[in-house]
Amino acid sequence: MQTILYARVSTADQTSTHQRKQAEAAGFKIDHVVIDEGVSGISTTLAERPQGRRLFDMLRAGDVLVVRWVDRLGRNYADVTETIRELIRRGVVVRTVINAMTFDGATTDPVQQAVRDALIGFMAATAQAQAEATKEAQRAGIAHAKAQADATAYRGRKPSYSRDQFKIVRDQLSQGVAVAAIAKATGLTRQVVYRISADPAEAEAALARWAA
């Protein structure tokens, strides 16, 4: 039996190194790490990704697949639910770092199976909803910035956060991570995290105005 961490890294997400540190801090002893770099979880299914295919080949019955959260498997509801169910059918245990969820085929009780499957569906739907909300916030921020695009327009105070920090804050807020934890992880003050949380579209627009 082996424990494999699967890390998907896109331009808006954490690094694979950080994902491994999170998993190990949560008590997982990782035997192997499989990483897909710069791959969208919305448009590309796990089975279509180069390392996703390798992951399916590696996993055997009794193995444990660790992911930071189900959104690492994908951001599409149908894809994520089918992926997790296929892994369960193969005898693989799927565990998440965030929320410490476990999905497996251990139970034969139909009620418990129904609860498990409902939870899989809920988490997959949440991952897709978060992806769509992120895209909408980006569109709103870009539109707001374009409306203020006059070269002589007042740009306001320069943001005290970088684009990478903003993306991490936005991603972790959508997952319900506490403000204090986000501030510690990004090096920002809690006040800055609160400002981004209160108006993510304006926070995105501020970066665009300063070409940050």
Rank of each mutant, 00 (worst) to 15 (best):
T44M: 14
A23M: 11
I30S: 09
N76I: 06
Y77I: 01
M58S: 03
V66P: 00
E37D: 14
K29F: 12
D31G: 12
A47N: 04
L59G: 01
T44S: 13
G41D: 10
F56G: 01
R72S: 04
V64P: 01
V66I: 02
Q51T: 05
Q22H: 13
A61G: 07
A47V: 08
D63R: 03
L46W: 06
D57P: 01
Q51F: 10
V70N: 00
R68P: 02
L46V: 08
V34F: 11
R68M: 07
V66L: 00
W69P: 00
G41F: 11
W69I: 06
M58G: 02
R49S: 08
L59T: 01
I42G: 12
A26V: 12
K29R: 15
T81E: 01
Y77L: 05
I35T: 15
V70L: 02
V34D: 06
L46R: 03
V33I: 14
E24V: 14
I30A: 08
S43G: 14
E24N: 11
V39H: 12
A47K: 07
V70Q: 00
V64D: 00
D79I: 04
W69Y: 06
R53E: 06
A26R: 13
A47C: 04
D63Y: 07
E24D: 10
K21I: 12
G41C: 11
D31T: 08
R75K: 05
G41Q: 10
F56E: 02
A26I: 11
L46D: 02
S43A: 15
S43P: 05
T45P: 05
D79M: 04
K29I: 10
Q22C: 13
K21W: 13
I30V: 13
L59M: 04
I35Q: 09
G27K: 13
D57V: 03
I42S: 14
G62N: 07
A78E: 03
P50E: 11
R75W: 09
G52T: 09
R72M: 03
L55M: 02
T81R: 02
A61I: 07
W69H: 03
K29N: 15
G52H: 04
A25D: 15
E24K: 13
D57S: 07
F56Y: 05
E37R: 15
A23F: 12
E48W: 06
S43C: 12
F56L: 04
S40K: 12
T81H: 01
L73K: 01
N76R: 04
P50R: 12
L46M: 05
G38A: 14
G62D: 04
F28H: 08
T45A: 10
N76L: 05
A25Y: 13
D63E: 03
I35S: 08
S40F: 15
Q22N: 13
Q22D: 15
I35Y: 10
V39A: 11
V33L: 09
Q51W: 06
D71V: 07
Q51C: 09
K21L: 14
A61L: 06
E48Q: 09
A25W: 11
R60F: 09
E24M: 14
M58W: 08
S40N: 12
T81P: 00
G52N: 03
T81W: 03
G41I: 11
L55C: 03
A23Y: 12
A78M: 04
G27A: 12
A61C: 08
S43Q: 14
D36W: 12
L59K: 01
N76F: 08
G52L: 06
R49C: 06
L65F: 03
N76H: 06
E24P: 07
L65C: 01
D36N: 11
I35A: 09
G38N: 15
G62Y: 08
